[in-house]
Design a protein around this nucleic acid. Sequence first.
DNA 1: GCATTATATTTTATGTATAAACTATCTCGC
DNA 2: GCGAGATAGTTTATACATAAAATATAATGC
Lengths: 170, 170
Amino acid sequence: MHDPATIEAGIPDDQLLPLRVWLALFSSVKQIEAVVRTNLRESFASTLPRFDLLSQLYRSPGGLTMGEISARLMVTNGNVTGLITRLVDEGLVDRLQDEDDRRVQWVRLTPKGNKMFSSMAPANQTWVTQAMAGLSDAELRQLQTLLGKLKSSVAAAPKHPRGDEDPSAG
Amino acid sequence: MHDPATIEAGIPDDQLLPLRVWLALFSSVKQIEAVVRTNLRESFASTLPRFDLLSQLYRSPGGLTMGEISARLMVTNGNVTGLITRLVDEGLVDRLQDEDDRRVQWVRLTPKGNKMFSSMAPANQTWVTQAMAGLSDAELRQLQTLLGKLKSSVAAAPKHPRGDEDPSAG
DNA sequence: GCATTATATTTTATGTATAAACTATCTCGC
DNA sequence: GCGAGATAGTTTATACATAAAATATAATGC
């Protein structure tokens, strides 16, 4: 039961639950990501970041600014610049300047990009559904509820907590 | 309630639960990752992949082979080569050849690496615990159970499912 | 023994990601 | 108007990640 990587690091066993849940979360996501990534590559010669980006644009027919994309994908601005550049090269999206604010870039799906996402989305849904087929609807809803609470919890947590305190003391 | 990115892609609303759970999982992990990454950088001038690698080595005092590290971190061999090279440069790990099989590289923590991980582990545990402070122990255990089921489910799913079928038909 | 095959790791080319510095533009207060 | 700061995005340097090809060694079958 005791985890050698934490015993010697001085972490009592009864404090390990959040850490264990975090590791389980992390590996679940990596596992599913691997499935989706492999399938996206084999079926569409595409990638997960590209798919996520197309997905965001798909649900925003009016387009999105670079900053809004960055916020929604939870990645840096510079990352979005690179992703968009590649997608523009592939003809899946186009960019246009804002009329009023010349700092702002609007990004939209091209018809080709729209068609591309429309064919990817059902496939992606199938892969994810099959990966989660071992969970009942009730379990999925339970998971959804818990993840909702987790999201609030993380948002409420201090951004730069001191890492040298005993978490059991709080 | 209806999600425009799926309605138009022809996905009925009652089939969206797994997809929604997947998105919630994905964003939860990214959220927590961001916290941990920021803190690792600010407190230890380090990164999450380095920390995960040190953690694996810490709990294997006899060392690990490159392949075993790759399997445990769920990343490619080539990725591990690069990570280890950087950690060797920093003096946190060392490599040695297997006596019997000259293809095999054994990797172990140096005393410096051991000390480094020992100081990082409690801090990491604090950050994660604080991020999850909004969930009760009962909820964390519930989450742990569900993630265990999810892991089995993903492992049991076909690796290369056809993505062009209606998942409601299965 | 020797060719074949399998295994362990590295290399190569490319894509994705960050943080920090930088450029350009806008807004606000005066 | 104008200067100070804020905001949007890009660039730079570097790290992390993949897939595929290459290298080196080991194990197997004959």
